[in-house]
Computed example of a mutant assay.
Amino acid sequence: MVIRVRQSQMVEHSNAVIIRRGYEAFASADSSALMSLITEDAVWHSPGNNLLSGDYQGVVAILGYFAKFATLSQGKFQVTVQDVFANDNRAVVLTRDTATRNGRTLSWEGGVIFQLQTGRLQEAWAFNLNQSLVDAFWS
């Protein structure tokens, strides 16, 4: 799994730094680092109608959701963080995701809206700009 994180030249909000740290931990499969960034009762909402869709409640379920990407793509899932916008309570990440599955490769635009509580993920809403294409790929 590979995640490319483009570094900003400006001083970023502390929540943007935390989000980038989370994507780096995801890329390196550092579950300890990820756990430290997620509240125990956090919820992750994954859109669509596919093998990844649904609501994941709690840090263990969310880490399991992340592991599904590696499993379903045979380790060939990549996220490139394009932009991170943040304030004291929220962050928005725009990404380009690429995965290979069953001999097919797909690249798509998407992102996540994060609700943060004292620097930790409380709730997340993932989105894909072409959900029907993503659904067909992960189904």
Rank of each mutant, 00 (worst) to 15 (best):
R20T: 03
R20I: 05
R20V: 00
R20Y: 01
R20M: 03
R20A: 02
R20L: 02
R21P: 02
R21W: 01
R21I: 06
G22S: 11
G22L: 08
G22M: 14
G22Y: 10
Y23D: 08
E24L: 14
A25K: 04
A25W: 06
A25H: 09
A25C: 06
F26P: 00
F26T: 04
F26D: 03
A27V: 02
A27K: 05
A27P: 01
S28Y: 08
S28M: 08
A29N: 11
A29K: 06
A29E: 10
A29Y: 02
A29S: 13
A29F: 07
D30L: 07
D30G: 10
D30K: 07
D30N: 15
D30V: 03
D30M: 06
S31F: 04
S31M: 11
S31D: 15
S31G: 00
S31R: 14
S32N: 11
S32H: 08
S32I: 12
S32P: 06
A33P: 07
L34C: 08
L34W: 05
L34Y: 09
L34G: 03
L34P: 00
M35W: 00
M35A: 15
M35P: 04
M35K: 13
S36L: 01
S36I: 04
I38F: 02
I38H: 02
T39C: 04
T39P: 00
T39A: 02
T39Y: 01
T39M: 03
T39E: 12
T39R: 07
E40N: 07
D41T: 14
D41W: 08
D41V: 09
D41I: 05
D41L: 09
D41E: 14
A42N: 03
A42K: 07
A42T: 08
V43M: 08
V43C: 10
W44Y: 14
H45S: 07
H45L: 00
P47E: 05
P47S: 04
P47F: 03
P47K: 07
G48D: 05
G48A: 06
N49A: 11
N49D: 13
N49I: 05
N50S: 14
N50Y: 01
N50I: 05
L51V: 08
L51K: 13
L51N: 12
L51E: 12
L52M: 15
L52Q: 13
L52H: 11
S53L: 03
S53D: 02
S53K: 06
S53M: 02
G54Q: 12
G54T: 09
D55R: 15
D55P: 05
D55G: 09
Y56E: 09
Y56T: 00
Q57C: 09
Q57I: 13
G58S: 02
V60M: 06
V60E: 14
A61Q: 14
A61S: 15
I62D: 03
L63W: 12
L63D: 02
G64P: 09
G64T: 08
G64L: 07
G64V: 09
G64Y: 07
